[in-house]
């Protein structure tokens, strides 16, 4: 009890200290917060009514974002299949899967927007750096999921089919694949949803897609047009979410 009491005291001191320290070091001023109200009102006023004439740009940008997400996801699937096997505890030796898992953790730790900026620098503006960035970033998660799908396969039915005289390919097809396929499908759809959401903003760093227009219109003070594009993004996110929920139910 005494130790727990001490631990609790230490933890609350640490949290309180961190909060105080943060207030001291940044320019959080109440006067600025108070004057923000009218400014936001003005900002929103200039966004309203949204300019519907940008429909063409929305369709073009939305289609490009969708393409980035699809090709980026495809790239991630292609990379994750071998990496997933190499990160699996049941397929390879501990030194190998531990190394690959560490590599995947590093990949996951790098934010997508950072990868996209690096890729814009490497291959230039447009959807290509976006596709590469999504493929790279998504592999960090997807390969780990695939490895877990492989490791989650129960060995007993495989042994049972072998005992019944089934060959290795028949065992793969009838004992391993039925266990893995729904998990892989569900994980891939989930990652595709994330890819699509995340690639909506890639245009802000010049990596293609609908985000480019938000960036352009905000920079040129065309807030009514920016509002239309933002609304379109919100609609897309909600639609993706709804489709994904319906799909995931199928693979439960």
């Amino acid at each position: 009890m005494r130790f727990r009491g001490f631990g609790g005291f230490a933890a609350s001191t640490l949290v309180a200290g961190a909060i105080l320290w943060s207030f001291m070091t940044t320019d959080v001023e109440f006067s600025r917060l108070l004057s923000a109200g009218p400014r936001i009102a003005e900002f929103l006023g200039r966004m309203f009514p949204p300019d519907p004439t940008v429909m063409r740009e929305i369709m073009k940008g939305g289609a490009e974002t969708l393409r980035i997400a699809i090709l980026g996801s495809l790239g991630a699937v292609v990379l994750s299949a071998p990496l997933g096997i190499l990160a699996s505890e049941t397929m390879v030796s501990p030194p190998l899967y531990r190394t690959v898992r560490t590599l995947l953790a590093f990949i996951r730790a790098i934010p997508l927007i950072l990868v996209a900026m690096l890729m814009v620098g490497a291959v230039g503006l447009g959807p290509l750096p976006g596709i590469i960035a999504v493929a790279f970033h998504a592999t960090g998660m997807l390969a780990k999921f695939y490895a877990e799908a492989i490791d989650g396969v129960s060995r007993a039915p495989i042994a049972a089919l072998e005992s019944a005289g089934a060959g290795p390919l028949a065992r793969l097809r009838h004992a391993i694949w039925p266990q893995m396929a729904p998990v892989i499908a569900r994980d891939t759809i989930f990652r595709f949803e994330l890819n699509l959401r995340e690639s909506l903003i890639l245009g802000i760093v010049g990596a293609g897609g609908i985000g480019f227009y938000i960036q352009t219109y905000v920079r040129s003070f065309q807030y009514d047009k920016a509002a239309s594009v933002t609304l379109a993004v919100i609609v897309m996110v909600v639609a993706i979410e709804a489709i994904n929920v319906a799909l995931r139910r199928r693979f439960a």
């Binding site: 129960s154 007993a156 039915p157 042994a159 005992s163 019944a164 005289g165 266990q179 729904p182």
Partner: peptide, 16 residues
């Protein structure tokens, strides 16, 4: 192998 059938204790079925 098919001539010898085995009923496993934990069934060993493909659950899905």
């Amino acid at each position: 192998r098919p001539d010898t059938g085995f009923v496993f204790q934990e069934f060993a079925l493909v659950e899905r």
